[in-house]
Amino acid sequence: MERGGRFHTKSAELLAQVTWEVAGLPDPEEERKRQAAEFAALAAQYHPHPPLARNLIFAFLVGGSICAIGQLFIALFQSLGMTDVQASARASITLLALGSLLTGLGVYDEIGRVGGAGAAIPITGFANSIVSPAMEYRTEGLVFGFAARLFSIAGPVVTFGILAAMASALIRFLVTG
């Protein structure tokens, strides 16, 4: 079976091709691809563009506002005598809590609908991506529902973040020590 398996497939393909050519018919596979391309071209004419200006403006406003609120928290924690790093870390946790609360109250999905990337990119969006599956899959139990699917959306960010961080830090360490 090992011997010539590949050859047989190839010759069968060749034979099919020759048969279609002799019969003066288009190769059905080629014909299908041509139809699909033709359809895609027609469909593209009717496809609406995303409301780009509106989306960009709202992404900027929503994302900017969340960062501005973060800066207000940083200033608040600094005024309590914390260092910049401490204040920044606590501001992040505060925003995580706010994002979680707004998700729980059913508000954050509406913010996301309007703000798009402006709601997804700030750390509040990270909270939303963890809290929303936590709530949604709770009905399937605490182990396979809540716990197993907690990172079903945020998982890729954590995974690739770790891999990228290790690579990046290692290169830096090797180059500059």
Binding site: A59, G63, A68, G116, G118
Partner: peptide
């Protein structure tokens, strides 16, 4: 200073999100 830093956070944070939206939509 705090007020200025809030404005900067708004502008730069907003710009990062805007770039993200461009990646999605464009």
């Amino acid at each position: 200073e705090a007020a200025v830093s809030v404005v900067w956070a708004f502008l730069i944070g907003g710009t990062i999100c805007l770039i993200g939206q461009v990646l999605i939509d464009v």
